[in-house]
Design a protein around this nucleic acid. Structure first.
Lengths: 338, 338
DNA sequence: TTGTATGCGTTATCAT
DNA sequence: ATGATAACGCATACAA
């Protein structure tokens, strides 16, 4: 069955297309009686305005794009939840695209979305994305962007992040206070914004404790998650004095658990582990994992809120509009002082 | 900066709009030389065709819709991964909408998507959705739908599911073989397709063991996840002879762990637990959780593949096109025979 | 209060 | 080989 258009309604009601259009948009220059007739038929026939025709005229697509590395990740799925909710409140739709951590994918997605598919973009960058030139298309088209969590630091727009430096410092201090003297740091990328900041916090904490920073103790995880456990095992074998692990992402904390299990190392007796994580069930792990939890849902909401300000009130987003939220450390048995 | 349109390219090249259009679409009636000129300028100016204008002419939006209860759930996020991948392979976009388990939301989302926003829909129904009449809009508009995991059983279209009855039977048998004699079943809904089938498998297994089915041992979880732990605690207190729990979804298995911990019950000594789950880290739980794992990623891919067959080859999907995949039981310590 | 005409960006059809 | 024109569905400016 062909979709119900204004034309169909107009023919049926012996009205002009424009009269029907205005009736449905509740314009003041249409008789109440006519509005009633039109609305009755529209709902009877399940009329739904073609959003693409509207956007072709105006240039609001009522759609925002989310570009993230993966959805299969507690942090991102919680963030999406927050974003989707705000979008719904604003009567917008959400287009989701995954980069799978590949900068080229990220660039191509942006290029396509910029072609008029969305009114705004929420972006958390791929692990190895470096130059931000592929974002120029968005700027040129006047499509606002808000970064969340993983940001490009040199871009003149708003970001929503957490206090990664402070959290990195705090996590490391937590291990040192628990008695660790040789703390390894597992990161996903030392060029990525969050990777850099968390690492800086780690380094600063070591310094304050009078401990030397050793590059060898910093392990960069592999994109292929299956490879991380053996990498960590190798590190623990090479440096058996390691008594603490600070994992900058959930996945690396889990790989650390597996590595310790495979090597017969006990947590927290032999090695203490702390990790960034949004696992609700951290307390059900063996042993319960000490976590730094980011307010993922709030981050999503906040980022979306900023984006809608830009879209609907037509304000230009500036770095000064950026928001920083706090993460929370939950101490559990994986870092217990013995 | 205004977006680059065909008109802009045409003016710049002293060509007609239609010539430019055909050049970009690589039509045979355009001189190679001209094609080259056009393509060069297009890529120089980052020309991107306006997808909404194309879809207005044709009626392919190059977009599919995913409608699911939540994204914050391992099963669904893995499925999305599979779907997004197939969509990308077909050069399609993915619109994602969450029902938050509310049938009204589901209906309203469908109504809106049917208004020409997507070329096809992948749907996993909300927990309490009953009537499927809100899907008629899609049928009327000729928009194909593929259900995955949670399906409407009375609908003449294809579904992608797992062998839920067999899995329910197998899970229950697993507990009985481990020595359990009073097995509770935790479900999210006994009207939902997957809930019904898993329950039927549970009932059949009890029967084959000569055990009576007791309605009291079947607990329906609450949509508000926080309420489930106390509900399970209450059940365990009321029926202290319960020595096995079969949780039909991951969340309820986790709540069972918490309930047991709160009551001081040991797993698997006092109570054995098995649950449907896509937690990669089930083996890191305390104790490691015996799981029935659905091939979530494959389900997503398969559902998307079917949908694209319908969209691109214009075939009408029938129940006979449905696919059933197998889940896998991984036995771990939570159901160890002692 | 309602109708007519126009244009958004694209593509198909029919000229030239 | 290229150009002119019309149409998709909608919303606006203007006419009646």
């Amino acid at each position: 069955m062909p979709p119900v258009s204004l034309k169909v309604l107009a023919r049926e009601l012996n009205l002009s297309v424009s009269a029907v259009s205005r009736a449905l948009n509740d314009r003041s220059d249409i008789a109440q009686h006519t509005k009633d007739r039109v609305r009755a038929l529209a709902s009877k026939l399940n009329y739904e305005p073609n959003p693409y025709a509207s956007s072709l005229r105006g240039t609001k697509t009522k759609t925002i794009g989310i570009i993230i590395p993966a959805v299969h990740n507690h942090f991102f799925s919680l963030a999406i939840n927050g974003i989707e909710e705000v979008a719904r409140e604003n009567d917008f739709h959400v287009l989701i695209s995954l980069t799978h951590e590949e900068p080229e994918q990220e660039a191509s997605i942006i290029q396509v979305l910029a072609g008029g598919r969305v009114d705004g973009v929420l972006l958390s960058t791929a692990r190895n994305s470096q130059a931000s030139t592929h974002l120029n298309v968005l700027r040129d088209r006047g499509i606002p962007v808000v970064f969340f969590d993983r940001v490009y630091e040199d871009l003149p727009t708003a970001t929503v992040t957490t206090d990664d430096y402070a959290s990195g410092y705090q996590a490391t201090r937590h291990l040192l206070e628990a008695g660790c003297r040789t703390v390894a740091h597992l990161t996903i990328s030392d060029t990525l914004s969050i990777g850099k900041r968390r690492l800086q916090g780690y380094v600063a904490a070591l310094q304050d404790w009078g401990l030397a920073y050793e590059e060898e103790l910093v392990l960069q995880g592999h994109a292929n998650e299956a490879l991380n456990t053996p990498l960590i095992e190798a590190l623990l074998r090479k440096r058996p004095e390691i008594d603490g692990i600070f994992a900058s992402v959930e996945m690396l904390a889990m790989s650390s658990y597996e590595a310790c299990r495979n090597l017969g190392l006990s947590i927290p007796e032999d090695v203490k582990v702390i990790g960034f994580s949004n696992l609700e069930i951290a307390s059900l792990l063996n042993p319960p994992l000490t976590t730094i939890t980011q307010p993922a849902y709030a981050i999503g909401r906040e980022a979306a809120r900023l984006l809608f300000r830009a879209i609907q009130e037509n304000v230009h987003l500036l770095p000064a509009d950026s928001v920083e939220l706090k993460s929370e450390l939950s101490s559990r048995r994986s870092t217990a002082r013995l």
